[in-house]
Design a protein around this nucleic acid. Structure first.
Lengths: 340, 340
DNA sequence: TGTTAGCACTCTTTCCAGTTGAGTGCTAAA
DNA sequence: TTTAGCACTCAACTGGAAAGAGTGCTAACA
């Protein structure tokens, strides 16, 4: 793979991303100053096809990049350009204007990403399991019920109604809260071991009270695992010529409805930094003609969540990468602002 | 509009709903036992077109119903049939299997409606403004902050972090909670008047404390107004031949992204019972080739929210109406089960 | 007088053949 | 090694012909 081949591949990928039409040797020669004639380019293209970087619909059509071609382009040929200052300012402005509560941060992030990249965006919001348990408190509701309020370090508060077992009083619950807080404070929720639970059981003593406690803790774990997913710009993707076929649109919309599937996909990329999965590299049916770019964002070293761009393989990788890299670092600042 | 015309109109609408093709006199004569020849039907069709119930694409095409035609069909010709017992059982099963928390009730309702009708469903979940304020409590968070927990009769609990003003202590907040609970208990949130606020101000005495209280109350009002909207089956609509054109799909998907617009539309129908808005009767651009069927559900006489079916004008009105009527009565029961 | 059969007419859809144009692959010359 | 030239391929477009569905009108019929 000599340098000229690389330049030609780069030219083809860029032209194809722009035009969505198979590109021919003549077009490349005219639009890019490679200093060689179309015939030479044709020879190189034949080689590139042999090597698996390009594809051919039929004998007399131009070339389009294969998944392998995009992969090489993304890994080695992508011209990097930082985000414009004014774009950064605009993004800050959007956050300022439209976000009032912490969960709106993610909604707005999804909006921004889809708006800038003209593709679908996905934002997986922090899961409580990664955040440390902070404290649990009970509030009296009526004679037979109490409200459990559970807080974590990441700024999330959950609540649940618990029935007070016969023979117990609200005061027992308050005592129980002390025990639980003593044992669990600082633990991440998925680090709560059976041994710790056993200690709690012994300290509480009463079996029916412990069952209530267990339910609360179980619930907080359960809620924690329920990561939230925000989708943006599902209609943007329809502007792309590859989605002019309604059947394909349907397939992808159907995928968007399967929230758990999307969460699992994003979850699998958690902690991997910026990663691009191109075309057939995607295992999920319905995404084989798409590329997915994911990035994980952090806050003070603690894993927070995943942001992603989903578009046709012919997406503007450079732009998407630039934006995700920026949001990656920026999102932590925004979250901090809307934290406690 | 004699009876024969009505039967012919009914036959045309039904056939068109089924086939999505303009229907001709011969088809009607063959498929429906009207006892007259195609020629007679042609004459009647010409009359119906004159009266505005039918439309004509070009000289030699069959007829399709106009908005007026659908309107007459829905109002006067719709054959009513109750939901099958087994369908009811299936719906109950779905709720049982998939719903764990109160907000999942609405998500699942949307799923069920879209699944049964093969159209898009919209569910506007209860707004707190309609629910009565139950009580407010504070929990200590640290020296300078407290957590406010607000509960309403409808089973919703919201929380918010409030800073404790300099010079005040957590105990002042507890005193404040007593005052607020005394003044607001039983009020619906939108019935909290300036006069009541003034009383609270006087009873609290301290200005900075009152400001904190005001913020909490304002926040609970604010959250209350944020009705939640659940969408289901956006991909279903693509199976309909009228959405084979990607431009139309895009237009409607774009509408789905404007959550506030959808909320406003559903909100406008709140309290009107079962209502059908057909084709051009819809004022919103992008919905002019669709019909929207809405129904409001109640719980113990208290307004809860709106459920709706959105589909092409050629939707199966009978089925949708049957289902909405059933869900209408049924949803209250389900909500009750998942309430406190 | 309402109903029906017959027929001419309209318009869409489908098919086919011919043409155009973009693009390739190969060969031979520079 | 590069390039010009040329034959070849294939998709996309064009125009016309034929088929088919359906209408509207007229005249006959019960």
């Amino acid at each position: 793979m000599d340098e000229r081949k690389q330049r030609i591949l780069q030219a083809i990928v860029q032209d194809y991303i722009e035009s969505a039409e198979p590109v021919g040797s003549r077009t490349i020669a005219r639009r890019h100053d490679l200093g060689v004639s179309p015939a030479t380019i044709r020879n190189e293209m034949a080689d590139l096809e042999m090597l698996g970087y390009l594809e051919h619909i039929h004998t007399s059509s131009g070339r389009i990049p294969s998944s392998k071609g995009y992969r090489f382009y993304v890994d080695d040929l992508l011209p990097s350009k930082p985000l414009e200052e004014e774009e950064k300012a605009l993004i800050d402005k959007w956050y300022m204007e439209r976000v009032r509560r912490i969960d709106e941060v993610f909604q707005e992030t999804a909006r921004i990403i889809s708006h800038v990249t003209k593709n679908v965006s996905l934002v997986l919001a922090p899961q409580m399991t990664q955040a440390a348990f902070r404290c649990l408190q009970f509030l009296p509701l009526d004679e037979r019920r109490a409200i459990a309020v559970i807080m974590t370090d990441a700024g999330f508060i959950e609540n649940k109604i618990v029935p007070i077992p016969d023979g117990a009083a609200f005061e027992d619950f308050q005592r129980m809260a002390l025990v639980i807080n003593g044992c669990l404070a600082g633990h991440t929720l998925d680090a709560i071991s059976p041994a710790v639970m056993k200690t709690i059981r012994e300290e509480i003593g009463d079996e029916s009270l412990f069952e209530a406690a267990q339910e609360v803790i179980h619930r907080s774990l359960d809620t924690g695992k329920r990561e939230r997913l925000y989708l943006g710009g599902t209609s943007e993707i329809l502007s792309q010529p590859e989605f002019h076929d309604v059947e394909k649109v349907k397939e992808i919309l159907l995928m968007f409805e399967e929230e758990q599937l999307l969460k699992d996909i994003l979850h699998a990329h958690l902690g991997e930094g910026l990663k691009v999965t191109i075309g057939k590299e995607n295992e999920v049916r319905g995404m084989q003609e798409c590329s997915l770019m994911t990035a994980t964002y952090h806050l003070d070293g603690e894993l927070l969540g995943t942001i992603a761009v989903l578009g046709p393989t012919r997406m503007e990788y450079g732009k998407a990468m630039t934006l995700l890299n920026y949001m990656n670092g920026h999102l932590a600042d925004v979250v901090k602002k809307f934290r406690w």
